[in-house]
């Protein structure tokens, strides 16, 4: 495991673009974490190379994202690419209280697995993320009890980690939401989908701020 280290305030204050991920040099601390993780990476050569690219991009994404948006607490390249992600500045809907008012939690902790099959096989959107915190996330595409977050009915082969993180952000903030239980993609929790159908205008989306942006356009 590779603990989060301070990156010396190198995060950009201006709005970055996703394409900046490729141009962003890793901070010395992130470069060290990546080098150490690569030392323990196992698997076929092409999978190890892929894991290196994905890990580098994830770390770069955390650097160019606004402060608090994404923190890579640890990551592991031993087998599948795994990471523990903190999104502290992200609104997350939680189970309504007794007055039926939605509780909005600021921030989420996600466990991420990018399996070795992902580069060449379309996978269900629920295999990548588990919401570790908060508890009781009020989204129809979250599967109880482990709170797997479904980011799409299926994720095309080769979808990079950076795109998956954006999809997770969109799902948590309800910028993208599927609440039709009769849709072929389906939902994990029809009762929550029904609740949202009755309360759509009040909350959705929870924020219009893009992942790499700082202003809510609402």
């Amino acid at each position: 495991m590779h603990e989060s280290l301070s990156d010396g305030g190198s995060k950009s204050r201006s709005v970055a673009r996703l394409s900046d991920v490729h141009r962003t040099a890793l901070t010395p601390s992130n470069a060290r974490r990546l080098a150490e993780a690569l030392g323990h990476a196992r698997g076929a050569a092409d999978w190890r190379a892929r894991k290196e690219v994905e890990a580098r991009e994830l770390l770069a994404l955390s650097q160019i994202a606004p402060p608090g948006r994404l923190d890579v607490a640890w990551f592991d390249l031993g087998e599948d690419f795994r990471a523990l992600l903190h999104m502290t500045d992200v609104p997350v809907p939680c189970q309504p209280g007794t007055n039926n008012a939605l509780r909005i939690h600021s921030g989420a902790t996600l466990g991420m697995i990018y399996p070795s099959a992902a580069p060449r096989q379309s996978l269900p959107g629920s295999v990548f993320f588990q919401i570790l915190s908060p508890h009781g996330v009020w989204l129809p595409q979250v599967a109880p009890p482990q709170q797997q977050l479904c980011v799409a009915a299926s994720v095309p082969a080769g979808t990079p980690v950076r795109a998956l993180v954006l999809m997770a952000y969109g799902a948590l903030t309800m910028q993208s939401i599927q609440m039709d239980a009769s849709h072929p993609a389906g939902v994990f929790q029809p009762a929550i989908a029904e609740w949202w159908q009755s309360n759509l205008e009040c909350y959705v989306p929870l924020t219009r701020t893009p992942f790499l942006g700082v202003d809510d356009a609402r």
């Binding site: 795994r82 990471a83 996600l110 466990g111």
Partner: peptide, 12 residues
């Protein structure tokens, strides 16, 4: 936790 479970656990 799913993301903290390994069928094949790296030595690290």
């Amino acid at each position: 936790a799913q993301s903290m479970s390994w069928e094949t656990v790296p030595a690290s």
